[in-house]
Simulated assay, not measured.
Amino acid sequence: MTDSLTPRLALPLLAAGQAQKEMSHNEALARIDMTLHGNIIAADAEIPPGAPEPGQCWILGSVPEADWAGHPHELAGWTGGGWRFVAPCEGMRLWLGINGGFALFSGGEWRLGDAYGRLIVAGEQVVGPRVAAITEPSGGATVDAEARATILAVLNAMREHGLVDAG
């Protein structure tokens, strides 16, 4: 990374006395437009589309081809000036659409549809990783030890997920 680029998104910085400042400025705006509240057409894409529209973006797969070659796992966006690429940085999050949820770049890879593995509300974890299934009771129609054990297992699971206080 040079002093003429920002450290996270490699946005070009203006230099004092620089001629044609609009080129650096416009490049930075194009990259910001791709990454700020990004809306992704497809993830793990390998082949560029035939007729992209300005503003459309793709998360590239591990072996992209043609115009995308040499940009694995990067964000590719089509602009009036052609393809722009942004290398993902830790914590980058992009929208995959209503059925896909979010793509999160973490640990050097894109995690598709995986929000975070837990949900924090008001500083408290309320949902965590899924636990083993709870066995349904089978037996009589009256309250018995098996039913009580199942109810206790449900309560313990809810407590573990932070949905019910441990009391």
Rank of each mutant, 00 (worst) to 15 (best):
A132F: 13
A30V: 00
A16F: 12
E109Q: 12
G101K: 03
V131R: 15
A103Y: 00
T35E: 08
T142R: 12
A141Q: 09
A76E: 00
G167S: 09
E124M: 02
D165Q: 14
A10M: 07
E22I: 07
T79D: 08
W68Y: 11
M23Q: 15
L9T: 15
W110N: 03
P7D: 10
T150G: 00
E136S: 14
L163Q: 15
I120N: 11
S4Y: 10
P49T: 01
V143G: 03
D144E: 03
G81Y: 08
N156V: 09
T150F: 13
A87R: 15
S62V: 13
I59K: 06
P72G: 08
W110I: 00
W58V: 01
A69F: 10
V121M: 03
A30R: 09
W95G: 09
S106P: 01
F102G: 00
A42V: 04
G77Y: 14
H37D: 15
G108E: 08
Q18F: 06
R93I: 13
L60F: 01
G101M: 05
L94Y: 09
L14S: 03
H37M: 13
P12T: 09
A30C: 05
D67E: 13
G38N: 03
E160S: 15
P54L: 02
R31F: 08
R159T: 11
G128F: 05
W68V: 02
P48N: 04
R8I: 13
G70Q: 06
I40N: 06
M92S: 12
A166T: 15
W78C: 05
W78T: 04
G38R: 03
S62D: 15
I151A: 02
E90M: 00
H25N: 02
D33L: 14
A166I: 11
E27N: 10
